[in-house]
């Protein structure tokens, strides 16, 4: 973080202004964190404290009951397993298929390349929910509704354009001279792929699959529409949980934390990539 300091302007800045700016910054940070803090606060309170007209800002008698009761819910663990299976299937398939296309766009000059780039970019902007009606009818006819592979198939399409686009960036970053040097030394195209591009794209593959995991893990509308309660993921469980018999806020917040933990950890690991990915070109100017 320290390197940002280089850009700080010191000329013509009043002390009072700096104090005001620091105060505003701290208030902003607290405001942003408050909902997160409140979720944590609630999750560790016993039910009597959750349902209190004068809520306390720390649990008076902290307890893990809410986590226990969330984990004990009939469909919670199955939803977690379903989510992991669907996500793994979708991410793995997107990675394999997407890598090949990324390779083509990044390393070959061919008629239609621009068209493929255009398709990959445009497809990311299609409001996916708009396609849910025909997708539902198609999967219904193929008898793939209320199944995990059906949802994974839809998620695959959801992840694929982004995967292609990001991996293309990573492959473009590998100096082409490496390929050429290897080919002069007698490597075939296939060997260049296995021995140079694939190993060097490793970090990119990790970052892309982590982002894919987040996308698939966070999705709930599609799975909620296609599958019965037995075949939901954790996000959909969070949604289902709210509509039945009023809201049990404590367990819901505990469930929300359990659901968020992998996402938050993964996100913080790859945040650098996400922050630059969407706007890299614009920053470079």
């Amino acid at each position: 973080m320290a390197r940002h300091d280089e850009g700080v302007i010191t000329v013509g800045r009043s002390r009072a202004g700096t104090v005001a700016a620091n105060t505003a910054g701290i208030i902003f940070g607290l405001f942003m964190l408050f909902p997160v803090y409140w979720v944590l606060n609630t999750a560790f309170k016993p039910e009597a404290e959750v349902k209190s007209f004068s809520p306390t800002f720390l649990p008076q008698s902290p307890t893990l009951d809410n986590f226990r009761s969330a984990l004990g819910e009939e469909l919670f663990i199955p939803a977690m397993i379903n989510g992991l299976i669907i996500t793994a299937m979708a991410v793995a398939a997107a990675l394999v298929v997407g890598f090949l296309a990324a390779l083509a766009i990044a390393r070959f000059q061919f008629y239609g390349r621009k068209a493929i780039i255009l398709i990959v970019l445009a497809v990311q902007l299609v409001p996916f929910l708009a396609l849910l009606i025909p997708l539902f009818l198609m999967l219904q006819r193929a008898q793939l509704t209320d199944s995990l592979p059906g949802v994974a198939l839809v998620y695959l399409v959801l992840l694929l354009p982004y995967t292609v686009w990001t991996l293309r960036g990573f492959i473009s970053g590998i100096p082409r001279e490496l390929d050429e040097a290897a080919m002069i030394d007698g490597c075939t195209r296939a060997q260049v792929f296995w021995k140079i591009i694939l190993p060097l794209t490793g970090p990119g593959l990790v970052a892309t699959s982590v982002y894919g995991f987040i996308q698939a893990w966070n999705e709930f509308i599609i799975i909620n529409t296609l599958n019965s309660p037995e075949n939901q993921n954790l996000m959909a469980w969070l949604l289902y949980n709210q509509t039945e018999r009023g809201t049990a806020w404590g367990p819901l917040m505990a469930g929300a934390i359990i659901t968020s933990i992998p996402v938050v950890i993964f996100f913080l690991l790859i945040q650098r990539n996400i922050a630059t990915g969407l706007t890299a070109g614009a920053v470079k100017g």
Partner: peptide, 19 residues
């Protein structure tokens, strides 16, 4: 603070605000 908010799944954030 912003990273935590960004990392939060949209549905979890919505549930937090509902609460």
């Amino acid at each position: 603070a912003m990273m935590f908010v960004w990392a939060l799944p949209a549905l979890v954030a919505a549930q937090a605000f509902r609460w």
